[in-house]
Structures are given as C-alpha cells and as structure tokens.
C-alpha cells in the first residue's frame, strides 16, 4: 500500500515547490496587511461617501468565496486586458480576500485605544499622521497580533486553492506526480505532512505570543 522508496523518491520534488507556497503566503499576507490597514482608515474617514464605498467593497469581498475571486482575477480580468501570471493573480486574490478580515482586526484594535489618547495627541499638537504612527497604531496593533498570526496560518493552509488557477505550488506538484505514476497516496500524504510540519510549530509559537500579549495587556 505505502511505498517508502517511492515516497522518498518524490519528496524532493514536492518539497522544492514549498518555496512557491511560502512565497505566495508571505507576499499575499503583506499585501493583506497593507490593504487591510487602508480599508480600515478609509472606513474611518470623515467623508461619508468614502466610508460607504470602502465598507461595501470590504463586505462584498468578505462574503464571496476566495475561489470565485481567484477565478475572476485569473480568467475574467484578461478579457479586460489585464492578464496576470498564476502567481501574481494568486497573491492578489489571497491578499485582497484576507485584507477584508484583517481590516476588521485592525478596526477592533484601533477601537480599543481610548478617546483620551486622541485628545492628548491634539493637546500636544500632533499632526493626524503622527497621531496614527506614534500614538494610536503602536497601541492598537500589539493586542491583536495573535489574531493576525492566526490569519497568517489560515492563509498558508489555503494556498492549495491557487492550484485551481494553475499555480504549481506543492499540491499541484503532488497532483502532477500522481497523474504521471497513478500513485497518489504518497505524494498527497507528503503534502499534508509538510503543511503540518510548518503550521503546527507556527501555531505553538503563536500561542506563546498570545500569552505574552495577554500578560502585557490585561
């Protein structure tokens, strides 16, 4: 049933695709962080139109499936003259989708900073920008770091979706091997184990971070 020789034979090829999976996660997540913060700031804008538009976009993205969004970016955008390679399309899809969750996380972090901090920033004559960068965000972000980390791990585990838009990440690599040899058990098991090996330690590290944060902010 299980062939160790075969498993070791295909392992290097699958593991080598890890680079694609990890870089898609990292780049996608950085995009999600930046976009997420932008959504949050736009939604907090004093301009009602900006607030409504940003809020609607975020709700729309959050409430439609990531897979559909990936298909749209990869297969429909080219009809409007925007052709993207699978990696770019995948990273944009992941980043956009997760930015809507992170926006919510940022919002809760920002709301946990009391109005007094804003007032004292005004009293000390801070500009709006410096109020955000020096006073509000340094207090808003640390308490929500564990939640942000959780989304990172979740996103990592969702990258196999990118195989649907032909990105050759580790699942797609395993599938390709299986299709050539008609043996799927070993390649797919290896994919599962690789995900486990990376995400389990990450979640333990995250738990520790969470304990530190709780100790500091309660």
């Amino acid at each position: 049933m299980w062939d160790w020789n075969y498993a070791f034979e295909v392992l290097p090829e699958i593991a080598s695709a890890l680079g694609v999976t990890i870089s898609a996660t990292v780049v996608g997540f950085i995009l999600a962080l930046v976009l997420g913060l932008i959504w949050t700031l736009l939604i907090r804008s004093s301009n009602k139109i900006i607030t409504t538009v940003a809020d609607s976009i975020v709700k729309f993205i959050r409430n439609t499936p990531l897979l559909v969004q990936l298909y749209f970016i990869f297969y429909v955008f080219p009809q409007f003259g925007l052709s993207l390679d699978p990696f770019t399309a995948g990273v944009i899809g992941l980043g956009l989708h997760y930015s809507t969750y992170l926006s919510e996380v940022f919002r809760s972090g920002i709301e946990s900073v009391g109005p007094g901090q804003w007032e004292v920033a005004t009293a000390l004559n801070f500009t709006t920008k410096k109020t955000w960068t020096r006073i509000i965000l340094p207090q808003a972000i640390p308490p929500v770091l564990p939640v942000i980390g959780n989304y990172f791990i979740t996103m990592f585990k969702e990258t196999p979706l990118l195989s649907a838009i032909t990105l050759v990440e580790i699942l797609q690599t395993a599938q390709n091997i299986g299709a050539g040899t008609f043996r799927y058990t070993e390649p797919l098991t290896i994919v599962g184990v690789l995900f486990l090996l990376l995400s389990y330690p990450a979640s333990i590290a995250l738990r520790q971070l969470e304990n530190r944060v709780t100790a500091r902010y309660s």
Partner: peptide, 17 residues
C-alpha cells in the same frame, strides 16, 4: 495657534506604550 495652549486631563492619558 493651538501650539500656545497645553492641557492636563483629569485621567492623565499618558502613553502606555
């Protein structure tokens, strides 16, 4: 103009970080 004015609040509002 505001740079001429300062304020001390009832609840201090120190920067906790």
């Amino acid at each position: 103009v505001r740079s001429n004015i300062g304020m001390v609040f009832q609840h201090f509002h120190l920067f906790p970080h």
